[in-house]
Nucleic acid binder design. Structure first.
Length: 613
RNA sequence: CGGGGUGUGGCGCAGUUUGGUUAGCGCGUUUGACUGGGGGUCAAAAGGUCGGAGGUUCGAAUCCUCUCACCCCGACCA
């Protein structure tokens, strides 16, 4: 923790709340549909409740955590030169026409008509809204660079909301946008992006999260470069690839694969593994179905995926991508290999062009206007491990049929090694065990993560689309260069729990804990005990600590268990035993022991030391 | 969107196959007593049109039809 922040915390008076006067509905059992620890524990601890799919109430305890995280975000954003604002969540869909993102977002967008029939949406992110504001409010290069951010509820109509707060349809997000006159140099995008990168590292560090920064795809937001901030956690939805030698880390979609090298005999070379055999595979367009029916492993399948070029001047109208059945085609890498835009082919159009969708084989390369990309692993004619001819199963280019013993040299119908419209290229997602792109000899490892932050270099994508340009000092009209930077605040809260809990409940990192100290009253009806608690709470508050006094008329066991469940970092127990010795019992949530007796005079300092470290 | 599953007091479940009186159980809640340092004991009580609509039947949580909600798995990879 930096000097500035601990001073800020100390100068603030801590909150004091009594359990009996707030609402913390703890429960012994979680709802049956809650599976992940963060979901179960946040509900059991009385932090959140589900209203409907992917939409949650934040009860007092949960809101306190959201506020703590938000405050850390604010402090670091402000320190990095940002200014907070608040944009509308209710937006006119007209705005999205300028960038075409109404289509890009599709069903993910919550859209509706108002009473006048005007098309509206609830903001899933705010590039267009802020650009619309900025293009009229920012009129001079002298106003740049500028960084504006907001903390706001966002709406995305997810196909499948899941895992409590980790993927909701309504969630709290910090989104920031930076504006620059140039990419490089002082005040440029690179500088602003780097400042945000550093701010994010500080934010997630302060939140007590164990995270990795990885290179990522920009996705529908667009732009040239991006990084994701991933909480390292096995229950995460995202797969990240890591090179243990160099520290290179990337989202699986983005991850490059090191040189896999051509086989000695060359691509496509090798004798057939047997006679080409056509087999009837009714209703088996998928790899999995075929494998089950024919009893072959996916790694022996050749998967042929049909794309069409989206650029008018593309070298070929169709692009077919061939990868091994156990691997995944990567659209971004295909785009790079082709050198132009591609999109998955429309099924009906592709069928008309002669592709037996569901049963396409590499032989479709013979159709008109086709460029074939083959991944190195799929271009092998010889099984290097076994030193035998590669056994390939692929489509038969007609409905409900596949072929066994496909051989590149014998069965393709053209000489793949020399044909102009056949290329070997790395076009699949990286997988564990692939060679590292950064260190020869090293192999990539796969890990799981929860994406809590994502930063993008947008460039002029939105300013060009929406006519946001200003005069520079040489009176040249220039597109404003933008960056955007998101943090899932509510998701970060869930990630904290996912990362930090035990059998008894949540173990909040002190910086985001709803309260720093819980004072458990053994006998709340005893006036002297209640007085001691009030006095202690006031002293702790003066020291900047947030205090929850458990004054409920419950049995001790219930209170201890609840204190553990809601995860307050320090528990002080006031009872006859300790009070008789002029002390209280001190126990850190992260300690497993029984706690220790601390003299009343020392306990405030002890708590502060424990919380502020 | 495809596949699978679940809807019964606040939470977790039984009962549905084979229709049959006032729909049960545990937790929680309320009241009282006894208790009092890791989810106590005893006694009493409140709380459910069995997701909704329609149908079959003397009779429906249970059978039929439609519908709604929610959960899990999968997925622009054919």
């Amino acid at each position: 923790m930096t000097q500035a922040t601990s001073e800020a915390t100390i100068s603030r008076r801590g909150d004091i709340q009594r359990w009996s006067r707030t609402l913390i509905p703890t429960a012994r059992e979680a709802p049956a549909d809650a599976e992940l620890p963060s979901h179960r524990l946040l509900v059991r601890a009385g932090c959140i409740r589900r209203l409907t799919a992917g939409v949650y109430d934040y009860l007092p305890l949960g809101l306190r955590v959201l506020r703590k995280i938000s405050q850390i975000v604010r402090e670091e954003m402000d320190a990095a030169g940002g200014s907070e604002l608040l944009l509308p969540a209710l937006c006119p869909t007209e705005l999205l026409k300028e960038t075409g993102r109404a289509e890009d977002y599709g069903d993910l967008l919550f859209r509706f008509e108002d009473r006048h029939g005007r098309d509206s949406y609830l903001g899933p992110t705010h590039e267009e809204v802020i650009t619309e504001m900025a293009r009229s409010a920012i009129t001079s290069y002298k106003q740049l660079p500028l960084n504006l951010y907001q903390i706001q509820t966002k709406y995305r109509d997810e196909f499948r909301p899941r895992a409590g707060l980790l993927r909701g349809r309504e969630f709290l997000m910090k989104d920031a946008y930076s504006f620059h006159l140039s990419i490089d140099g002082p005040g440029g995008l690179e500088e602003g992006y780097d400042a945000m990168y550093q701010a994010y590292v500080r934010i997630f560090t302060r939140c007590g999260l164990d995270f990795s920064v990885v290179e990522a795809e920009a996705g529908p937001i667009g732009g040239s470069a991006s990084h994701e901030f991933m909480v390292n956690c096995e229950t995460g939805e995202d797969t990240i690839m890591v090179c243990p030698e160099t520290g290179y880390a990337a989202n699986v979609e983005k991850c490059e694969i090191g040189d896999r090298g051509a086989p000695e005999q060359g691509w496509f070379a090798g004798d057939p593994s047997g006679d080409l055999e056509e087999v009837h595979t009714p209703d088996c367009p998928g790899i999995e179905d075929v494998c089950k029916l024919l009893k072959v492993k996916p790694r022996h399948m050749l998967k042929t995926v049909v794309f069409h070029a989206t650029d008018d001047d593309a070298p070929a109208r169709w692009v077919i991508a061939v990868v091994r059945g156990d691997q995944d085609v990567n659209e971004g890498k295909i785009r790079d290999a082709v050198g132009g835009g591609v999109a998955l082919a429309d099924v009906e159009k592709a069928k008309k062009a002669g592709f037996a969708i569901g049963y396409v084989s590499p032989r479709a390369v013979k159709l008109d206007g086709v460029l074939m990309l083959v991944d190195p692993d799929a271009a092998a004619g010889i099984d290097a491990d076994k030193g035998k001819p590669m056994f390939w199963v692929t489509g038969a280019d007609k409905k409900d049929h596949h072929v066994k013993h496909f051989n590149w040299a014998r069965d393709l119908g053209v000489d793949a090694a020399s044909a102009a419209n056949v290329r070997v290229a790395s076009i699949r997602n990286a997988a564990a065990g692939d060679p590292s792109p950064r260190a020869p000899g090293a192999t990539l490892e796969a890990r799981r993560g929860i994406e809590v932050g994502h930063i993008f270099k947008l460039g002029a994508k939105y300013s060009d689309a929406m006519g946001f340009a200003i005069m520079d000092e040489t009176q040249q009209r220039k597109s404003v260069i933008m960056g955007c930077y998101g943090i899932g605040v509510s998701r970060a809260m869930a990630a904290c729990v996912e990362m930090s809990h035990d059998d008894n409940g949540i173990v909040w990192p002190a910086a985001v804990a709803p309260y720093h100290v819980i004072i458990t009253l053994m006998r709340p009806d005893d006036a002297s005990h209640a007085q001691a608690a009030a006095k202690l709470a006031a002293e702790l508050s003066a020291r900047g600590l947030d205090v929850l006094i458990d004054d409920r008329a419950e049995r001790p066991g219930v209170k201890f268990n609840d204190a553990d469940l809601i995860g307050v970092p320090v528990r002080l127990t006031i009872g006859d035993k300790a009070l008789a010795q002029n002390g209280v019992e001190f126990k850190a949530r992260s300690d497993t022991g029984k706690g220790e007796l601390v003299p009343l005079d020392d306990v405030v300092a002890r708590c502060a030391a424990s919380v502020f470290e």
